[in-house]
């Protein structure tokens, strides 16, 4: 099997860090869903969530880092009770604060206040909606998720999210509901925009189409369904050397729920720490420097397949 490092070397490419611009914060693996494609195996039974002490350390790191973007993810970040505090603390520290919202968790009772805070703080909401039909969406994310997700998207629209001129950005993410690659982003965005507006009167800003990463629960499903080898071959065959230049891991650092650092959320799932050794956010006086190597694994082929994962 071709290794990712081998592929880079064959193409005379290297994957090293550049100036670090973005901070990704994973506030925990607790989630109200157990999506079949989740590389972190997040779910309702997971206990790992970021506590307030670690959050305070992450906020201090963010203050030292001068990041142009900060991206909060999970699990379902909405299920961390300290999320509002984190948002308020991070808001002054970056021009672009993003929340990867699990729409169904955001729609649960008692979350109206959080929605209001997101809007007041002009947090960019990035939400998963894999498909325009319940069968594929529910197959990936759980029964009833499609209908609940549309309800929450409507609520976000009512707050101004996705509406022209509001300054409130609502972006959607579509991951394939199976062992196949995603469609081209621009064509899929056009179709999502037309259908969401016509059928459900829902608006959004941008759609991102990302391939699923063969780690965690998705890797297990691939193996159980007999698709693992063919999927990996497809990722390898779709290697796009031009995508290497724009990979997000070059310019970001990812901090896990326990404060330890990784090059990206996928390396976190794979257990490949930043710089090859476990480093706590508290130990770094500044973000990782340009030129430092990035930990590689076969899952990296996901981010270089086709137009890439940036």
């Amino acid at each position: 099997m071709q290794t990712f490092a081998g592929m880079l070397s064959q193409n005379r490419l290297s994957l090293d860090r550049e100036a670090c611009e973005a901070l990704q914060i994973n506030v925990g693996l607790l989630c109200n869903q157990a999506c079949n494609h989740c590389h972190l195996e997040a779910g309702p039974r997971r206990k790992e969530i970021m506590d307030q002490a670690t959050m305070a350390q992450v906020v201090e790191f963010a203050r030292r880092g001068d990041f142009t973007g900060i991206d909060i993810t999970g699990g379902a970040p909405e299920m961390n009770p300290s999320l509002p505090l984190l948002i308020e603390s991070l808001r002054p520290l970056t021009p672009r604060l993003m929340l990867r919202a699990n729409l169904t968790a955001l729609g649960q009772a008692g979350q109206q206040e959080l929605m209001g805070l997101l809007a007041r703080s002009q947090v960019v909401v990035v939400a998963s909606l894999p498909a325009l039909n319940p069968s594929q969406t529910d197959a990936q994310r759980g029964s009833g998720v499609f209908a609940s997700s549309l309800d929450v998207l409507r609520k976000l629209n009512a707050l101004g999210y996705g509406q022209e001129g509001s300054g409130l950005e609502l972006n959607l993410v579509s991951n394939p509901a199976g062992a196949f690659l995603p469609p081209a982003q621009s064509q899929a965005e056009e179709r999502f925009r037309a259908q969401l507006q016509r059928r459900w009167d829902i608006r959004f800003n941008q759609l991102y189409t990302f391939a699923n990463v063969p780690l965690g629960r998705f890797a297990r499903w691939l193996r159980q369904s007999g698709n693992y080898d063919a999927y990996l071959e497809k990722l390898i065959d779709s290697f796009n050397s031009c995508a290497v230049e724009c990979l997000m891991c070059r310019r970001q650092v990812s901090v896990a729920w326990d404060g330890y650092l990784y090059d990206c959320d996928f390396n976190l799932a794979a257990g490949l720490p930043l710089g090859g050794r476990r480093t706590h956010v508290n130990e770094l006086s500044a973000p990782p420097k340009a030129g430092e190597p990035i930990a590689l694994g076969e899952h990296c082929f996901t981010c270089t397949a086709g137009s890439g994962f940036t």
Binding site: Q136, L181, Q187
Partner: peptide
């Protein structure tokens, strides 16, 4: 079948 799924079509 593969191409249709990869281009965003659904089973319906």
């Amino acid at each position: 079948t593969q191409a249709c799924l990869e281009k965003g079509s659904n089973l319906g």
